[in-house]
Simulated scan of single mutants.
Amino acid sequence: MSATVVTLTLNPALDQTVSLPALHCGAVNIASDVHVNAGGKGVNVASCLADWGVPVVAAGLLGRDNAAAFEQLFADKGIRDAFVRVPGNTRTNIKLVDRSRQCTTDINLPGISADEAALEKLQLLLDEQAENGRYFVLAGSLPAGLDQGCWAHFCRQLTALGARVVLDSSGNALQQALALPAAALPWLIKPNREELEQYLGRKLPQRDDIAAAARQLQAQGIAVVVVSLGADGALLCSADGCWHARALPLPQLHSSVGAGDALVAGLVAALSAHEQDWAEVLRLGMAFAAGKLEQIGPHLPDAANIRALAAAIQPQRLD
């Protein structure tokens, strides 16, 4: 049985996904369809975990003026709603899906602002949830006005309480979290190739370069480093070795939005069920990501579909 997972999203979003036969810049475009979903990286992770049957608590900051879509998602999927409401509207992110090129263009709008009182309330809630070995997924960007050391702060507090922190962020917020002392570092991180290159300040053109960079981060005290590589799949490094899994060819891309979040959800789903084979952990993560590509919104196909995708994924050990 899977243990309860807590996700934390400080900058959630309503994802408006607009599908187009082809996107023409500077011209009038006629959409074929549009979907609006409650999202944000941690919300997406929570949604996919719930689809797989993992008990999940979704926490963070949510604008009270347009919270209905989030509340409906949580109610529909049995996710415990632990979001702290703040004044204003949660941001909207516009996703333009170009069917002809099989790609997605993101337009992310400004989000809510947070005050110290809301953060203190959120900290108390997280402290109550923290248990030895429980997985906490800290995911996404930080809202305007929030100190870029916020993820580092939560990493320090939660690891001190015995939690296993999974961090999926980028830029300065990631840099500050990875500058913590070894004992306070996140247990697992999931940058993509570009985010890892930005953090290290150098290009990583080959798979061996990425694996070497992941091992470098491990040597600093991060137990597990997973790097998402888009069409090239993903790479996982732990103390037991490194594995690479190639992405599956899919007949049709419905939306790439949230595929990285689904990867995180799959990894955590395997880990929360006490899976100790790292190839199997990566396999389930990649199956979640592949399944998500066939969906609009933060949802997985049925479990039989995910198992079939997982069976087709063959992680390769690199060392």
Rank of each mutant, 00 (worst) to 15 (best):
L188P: 05
Q16T: 07
A68R: 09
L23H: 02
A144T: 12
N305E: 15
V28I: 14
A262D: 01
L122S: 13
F70P: 00
F288D: 01
N93T: 09
L293M: 04
Q148I: 10
C25E: 11
G149H: 06
H153N: 14
N192I: 04
D302H: 15
P181F: 08
K95P: 03
A247I: 11
G149E: 04
L23D: 02
V28S: 11
N108G: 04
A152F: 02
N11S: 12
R207V: 13
G241H: 00
D208T: 04
D277K: 03
I296F: 09
A289P: 00
L174G: 01
A289C: 00
Q102T: 05
V56K: 01
A308F: 13
P21M: 03
L167C: 11
N305M: 14
G171K: 09
L180H: 07
P251W: 14
D208G: 00
E194F: 14
V18P: 03
W243C: 02
E116K: 13
R215F: 10
L284E: 05
A311Q: 11
V225S: 08
A219R: 03
F136T: 15
P205E: 03
C103L: 04
H254T: 11
G266P: 01
E128M: 07
Q198N: 13
L180S: 04
A219M: 03
A290P: 01
V5E: 09
A144C: 10
T4N: 12
I112T: 07
S2K: 12
T90K: 05
Q123Y: 13
G230P: 05
D209W: 09
G149P: 00
T7R: 05
A177C: 07
K190I: 10
L309T: 12
H24D: 14
W52F: 14
L267W: 00
I222R: 06
L204K: 02
I94C: 06
P186A: 12
V54P: 12
S100D: 09
A67I: 07
D115A: 08
T17Q: 01
L200Q: 00
R164E: 07
P191A: 05
I189G: 04
A262S: 07
I112C: 01
G39S: 06
R215E: 15
P298A: 15
Q252L: 05
A231M: 02
K41Y: 02
D168G: 06
N132C: 14
F70D: 00
G230L: 05
I79H: 00
S100C: 06
V34G: 10
G111R: 02
A118P: 00
Q102S: 03
P298S: 15
G241S: 01
L229C: 03
F136I: 13
A183C: 10
L10Q: 02
I94D: 04
K77Q: 08
A160L: 15
N11V: 06
N93M: 13
F70I: 04
Q252E: 04
